[in-house]
């Protein structure tokens, strides 16, 4: 079943991406051939899913404390700060 532009719009909401109707329609047109091809090629495969490409195992660091960044550097790239914090407009959802 092809993806609809309404569905694309809903996906946009999930990943916090405002989409115009025109964009939603265009992205639906973009996704559909890809999904169609995937439907054709991927169906019925029964291999174990390959979740990790790295063949390494058990990489860990010891629990040692290092020196954190100075606060000015932490905040240096922020668009807006206040009282040593990153400032954002009000959060309506919890």
């Amino acid at each position: 079943m092809p993806v609809t532009k309404e569905e694309i719009k809903r996906l946009g909401e999930i990943i916090y991406l405002d989409l115009t109707d025109e964009e939603s329609a265009r992205f639906a047109d973009l996704l559909n051939p890809v999904l169609k091809k995937a439907d054709e090629l991927l169906e019925g495969l029964e291999e174990e899913p390959l979740r990790h490409i790295s063949q390494l195992r058990n990489r860990m660091r010891e629990d040692e404390v290092g020196i954190p960044m100075p606060k000015e550097k932490v905040l240096a790239n922020a668009a807006e700060t206040q009282d040593g914090c990153f400032r954002v407009p009000r959060i309506l959802e919890d």
């Binding site: 932490v74 206040q82 009282d83 040593g84 914090c85 990153f86 400032r87 954002v88 407009p89 009000r90 959060i91 309506l92 919890d94």
Partner: peptide
Amino acid sequence: KSLHAGETIIDAVYSLLDY
């Protein structure tokens, strides 16, 4: 942690983030 400037999360005008 987010610190909300206001009585509740809903009436806050802005929030501050501490990581």
